[in-house]
Design a protein around this nucleic acid. Structure first.
Lengths: 367, 367
DNA sequence: TTGTAAGCGTTATCAT
DNA sequence: ATGATAACGCTTACAA
């Protein structure tokens, strides 16, 4: 019997390599390589012998040597752009990072996290050339909605395998996204269905593509219903809670305030709710409200916030899947994938209380 | 004049390597290598010639070849353990990930994100051997408070360069942390200073070291004040909002309910506040409350939530700095670093309204 | 099916 | 100061 784990499973104890494994297994280095890479052209006898030695020594092939020979690193990049501060105002980024990480691991790929710091960061161009030029990565996922993201242009120009999470209006790169325009139109359409004719919107940062698309959808809905577009009813925000708060105060201070508001994000909607409450007015009685994103806090807000949910985890998973395809066939035409959103109607828009467990029931359930 | 950027700055256009650069610069490959690595033993003439060629072709050395030769990858690992779901109940993890990423880049290191999925993940042991054994990383940062984290034992046994964010009671690895016990004692001590004698606590998940430490600090404070320890006043939570909500309801349902409560996390405290409000009772009038963490929402809660803040970003920065040291001198004894917390007193504990801008002032400021 | 040997692109040692 | 040349550990024709 082979001495299984004779030396307490050291990781690559000493300085193990293919040559050494080969020696111990009584075969050649190539055979060991074939076994490791599941090459069928190996006899069962040799395969077993090699596997045994590998297991006994807990051997794992050296990553650098491997990628030097294969020109593949097995590493995917994930770039979060420099507008990092508002980026973490809610859990959208954390959740998408998580799903991308998990999906990468499931595909036996490692994930390299690239975060441009607003301050001490290297420029996009430098980062690009260092990481891409140095062949650190096989491909990259860019989670950015910024219109003038410089990386995007570089990726496009150099045809480096890349997937955007969030469409880009100018460069024809592969992306996965939700249809922000259509989704926003659905939201505002729902407010119109409730009978509202004076509908405001709290927008996001103007350099984000999603912001522009959601505004377009807002206009689409008004137009489709034959309602006028009053610029006074649109307030810019910043995707932060305070931005929503401020915007709602402005809307309420209008001579002829809206009776319903569409907020381009749930976090801003939460801030807006605080503003309404402080003004002693009620939701949806005085102002109906719907958000965008589908964050968890929407469901537990007072009143529960209607919203249109993005399939965040699925966006991440699709991005990884698409990137792996792209790495395999770099010359295929760019793919554009839109994932469905989910309109979740709760009390804040005037819909009847939803069929969800009450607080008491939840308590009982948690116990 | 050299043809600067003659071919539109392709990244490693064609198949550039040291040999090719050397040829174009009229020197040998070794000289090019020396220039790249800032070796002083190069004549200015040669250095300039090489630099020119490198710049003209936007050349970057191949990472795999480099680490094969140097036995250094320039990659740090960041492991987020498998209890991933509650991990993202607030922004602690996202913020620490961000600070670690930024600090790594500032130190010219890349960051590999390792997230064990609760479900489809490989086991800790497999992950360890694949990544560490395969020499993907120079070192690793583990952000985990879980007592029985299996990775920690492996890292300890194999003496792989590692830093824990959050101390481990058993294995003597380097770590950076806040002193949870002393901090909790300070919080509860403050409630005692307010005159409370019946003080409850909402704890966290029991498999977390921080939970145990904070409970110990709670006991310390009671003991130091000569107050009895009533087990009924301790309710377990889960670091989620709903857990705090449930725990507070139980505490309020007690025959002799507490007049003050220390919550082991701000998120749970927020849930607790909701429970108090729903019960028609007031904070701090009926129940004084202090949280732990210092999340942003604490300041805007109604009433503003007192808390003790962790220096989250600094924890990340220190972790990177310590890891780099450890990689340089692997045999140095483990370092234990405690960072100070910051008791932020607001209305929820009964302190006078703080000197912060009112909502109106904030609005004015934002405009 | 197996082994030999030639890369992969650096760094590092040793002469010169 | 510079240039050959041997590692580094793996994959992959090509031979056998």
């Amino acid at each position: 019997m082979a001495n299984q784990n004779g030396d307490r499973s050291q990781p690559n104890s000493g300085r193990m390599n293919l040559e050494e494994i080969a020696r111990l297994a009584g075969v050649s280095r190539s055979t060991v390589s074939r076994v490791i890479n599941d090459d069928p052209r190996v006899s069962d006898r040799a395969r077993n012998a090699v596997r045994e030695v590998i297991a006994a020594h807990n051997f794992h092939p050296n990553a650098a040597a491997r990628s030097l020979a294969t020109r593949r690193t097995g590493i995917l990049g994930l770039l979060i752009p420099r507008e990092i501060d508002w980026v973490f105002s809610d859990l959208f980024f954390p959740l998408i990072i998580k799903s991308i990480a998990v999906a990468s691991h499931a595909a036996e790929q490692n994930l390299m996290l690239l975060m441009e710091a607003s301050d001490s960061g290297e420029s996009a161009e430098r980062l690009f050339h260092r990481v891409i030029g140095g062949r650190h990565l096989d491909g990259i996922i860019v989670v950015s909605n910024v219109v003038e993201e410089p990386l995007v242009e570089l990726l496009d120009r150099h045809q480096f395998p890349a997937i955007l999470v969030g469409r880009h209006p100018v460069f024809d790169l592969s992306f996965v996204d939700v249809d922000n325009r259509v989704s926003a139109k659905a939201v505002v359409g729902h407010l119109i269905d409730h009978g509202h004719t004076r509908i405001g919107m709290i927008g996001g940062a103007t350099n984000l593509i999603a912001t522009l698309d959601r505004r377009d959808g807002y206009h689409d809905a008004l137009f489709a219903a034959g309602l006028p577009i009053d610029p006074a009813l649109y307030e810019g925000g910043d995707f932060q809670e305070m931005g929503g708060y401020v915007a709602m105060r402005k809307l309420m201070a209008l001579p002829d305030p809206p009776t319903a508001v569409f907020s381009a994000s749930d976090v801003m909607a939460l801030g807006a709710m605080r503003a309404v409450a402080e003004a002693g007015r009620s939701i949806p009685g005085d102002i109906a409200l719907i958000g965008f994103d589908g964050i968890e806090r929407a469901a537990t807000a007072t009143p529960p916030l209607s919203t249109i949910a993005q399939p965040v985890a699925e966006l991440g998973r699709q991005a990884v899947a698409m990137l792996l395809q792209r790495i395999e066939t770099p010359n295929a035409p760019p793919m554009h994938r839109y994932l469905p959103t989910d309109l979740q109607l709760r009390a804040s828009c005037g819909c009847p209380a939803p069929l969800v467990p009450s607080a008491e029931e939840v308590v009982a359930q948690v116990r």
